[in-house]
Amino acid sequence: MNIFRLAGDMTHLASVLVLLLKIHTIKSCAGISLKTQELFAIVFASRYLDIFTDFISLYNTLMKLIFLGSSFSIVWYIRRHKLVRRSYDKDQDTFRHYFLLLPCFILALLINEKFTFKEVMWTFSLYLEAVAILPQLVLLQRTKNIDNLTGQYVFLLGAYRGLYILNWIYRYFTEPHYVHWIPWISGLVQTLLYADFFYYYFESWKNNKKLQLPA
């Protein structure tokens, strides 16, 4: 494992911890899109179908368990926890996320590396992850006061994607036959979706002002 990959995984882990900290400690999910969280839960559930069949490493299995467990518990918290539920910006979080599922699934049926159940589901998870942040970005645009934890959460998620691209570039030059167009293109699309957010995140940081996205 190279440094970019490890840093990417750690940023991803940090993003989840920041979100859990906000939800569990402050008992608030204000500014967090349940739609995006539900999509992430579906992403991990369809990607990690191999968790009990193919052993890669202890690290790999543990991280998979963490991402599965955290994504489903976040959804549970927002939907079912008495206090957290109250802080959910339901009226603002209106993105029709179910409409993303079918196109991603059809695309996975059409464009994949191998036409098997596991491989199609894995490809579906890549396509879905690429667009899963959209409801969250729309909600951020509508949020007047983006709190620090929410801003940091989205920043860490974007950083994780950026680091994965560096990891792919590194692997391309160091490993033979390392060419994977499907994850690369969907990963690139996913990272580009954060570009606008990053711009305003750094602007607010540079000017020491509260983060706000133009509507």
């Binding site: 990959r5 995984d9 991803h12 191999d50 193919d54 890669i56 490493s57 790999n60 991280m63 998979k64 991402f67 894995w122 994965y164 990891n167 692997r171 490993e175 036959h177 390392y178 994977h180 994850p183």
Partner: peptide, 10 residues
Amino acid sequence: SNDMNLKDEL
């Protein structure tokens, strides 16, 4: 193998 490369990522 090529396949293994891909699936060791999260």
